[in-house]
Amino acid sequence: MEHNTLKGSFGAAAVAYAEHRPDYAPAAVRWALEPAPGTRVLDLGAGTGKLTGTLLALGADVTAVEPDPAMLTELRRALPTVHALPGNAEAIPLPDASVDAVLAGNALHWFDMAVAGPEITRVLRPGGVLAGLWNVLDDRVAWIAGLERVSGPAAIGPRDTLTNWRTATAHLIDFGASEQSEFPHGQRRTADSLTATLATRAGMLVMPEQEREATLTRIRAYLTTAVTGEFTLPMLTGVLRVRQLSDTASGRERRGA
């Protein structure tokens, strides 16, 4: 499936995304921000504001940037006081050296880093931090491993499980020394609401309708045998963090200006 088709699929499911996708473990967000020189944070590819909300709860001064109008509408509805702007990682609508950290929740893998890397560097202050965060399923749990097999890669891909996310995300950032860590997380779900959550994955959103319905029926049938009532979905928030060196943090230097 073409990258741009997948990347652009979320707007059609913005309301469901806002309802069903999880937030991010506060401990993971704190670790991502730990080296930042201040509290001004850009949530890049902010979607419906799942990461933005966690950042606000931790006291960050957040600007959210999101390219999809429907996703941005949901973000503004949920978090009306947030400074939320249309834009993307390849053309960030912020001044040079204006933020202490750039965070991306389940979004960094969609960026064209050949273009986005210099843009991110441009808006970071010296010593700033870039971090990608992903909520991943804990496939050390037997029924989660079974769910992965039943669901297929359109619903649960290589970035979506603890076993694979480190390898799948390790090389997304090509400047600075990166660090990875995982933090326990969870989400209260039922068989129906977890099925609805998996239905918001990009691979599922672009799937032909008949195949999509068959996949969701298979997932729901499996879950009715694996879980009962309301349960805590075993997850972790994985973080890929780069502490930007002060002598390379200026986009003007990176561009030779």
Rank of each mutant, 00 (worst) to 15 (best):
Tyr24Cys: 10
Leu44Val: 08
Thr48Ile: 11
Trp31Phe: 14
Glu19Trp: 00
Gly38His: 06
Gly49Asp: 12
Thr39His: 13
His20Asp: 03
Ala36Cys: 06
Gly38Leu: 03
Arg40Pro: 03
Ala27Ser: 15
Thr39Glu: 12
Ala36Glu: 06
Trp31Thr: 08
Asp43Met: 04
His20Ser: 08
Trp31Glu: 13
Arg21Asp: 08
Leu33Met: 14
Val29Thr: 09
Ala27Lys: 14
Gly38Cys: 09
Pro22His: 12
Thr48Gly: 09
Val29Lys: 10
Ala46Val: 05
Gly38Ile: 00
Leu33Gly: 08
Arg30Leu: 15
Ala18Asn: 04
Pro35Tyr: 03
Gly49Arg: 06
Val41Leu: 10
Leu33Trp: 10
Val41Glu: 00
Ala46Asn: 11
Asp43Glu: 07
Lys50Tyr: 08
Thr39Tyr: 00
Pro35Thr: 12
Leu42Arg: 02
Gly45Ser: 07
Ala36Val: 05
Leu44Tyr: 02
Ala46Met: 06
Glu34Ile: 01
Glu19Ser: 09
Arg40His: 12
Pro26Asp: 02
Ala18Pro: 05
Arg30Gly: 14
Thr48Arg: 06
Leu33Asn: 00
Thr48Ser: 12
Thr39Lys: 13
Glu19Asn: 09
Ala27Ile: 02
Pro26Trp: 09
Pro22Leu: 14
Leu42Thr: 03
Ala28Lys: 08
Ala32Phe: 13
Leu33Thr: 04
Arg40Gly: 07
Gly38Asn: 11
Gly49Lys: 03
Thr48Trp: 11
Tyr24Asp: 02
Gly38Ala: 09
Val29Cys: 14
Arg40Glu: 14
Tyr24Ser: 08
Glu34His: 12
Lys50Gln: 15
Arg30Lys: 13
Ala32Cys: 07
Leu44Gln: 07
Ala36Ile: 09
Ala18Lys: 10
Pro26Glu: 01
His20Gln: 14
Asp43Gln: 00
Asp43Asn: 02
Arg30Asp: 14
Asp23Ala: 14
Gly45Ile: 05
Ala18Gly: 11
Pro35Arg: 10
Glu19Pro: 00
Pro37Gln: 01
Ala28Met: 02
Pro35Gln: 02
Ala32Met: 13
Asp43Ala: 04
Gly38Tyr: 07
Leu33Cys: 14
Ala36His: 09
Tyr24Phe: 15
Ala27Gln: 14
Asp43Ile: 09
Tyr24Arg: 01
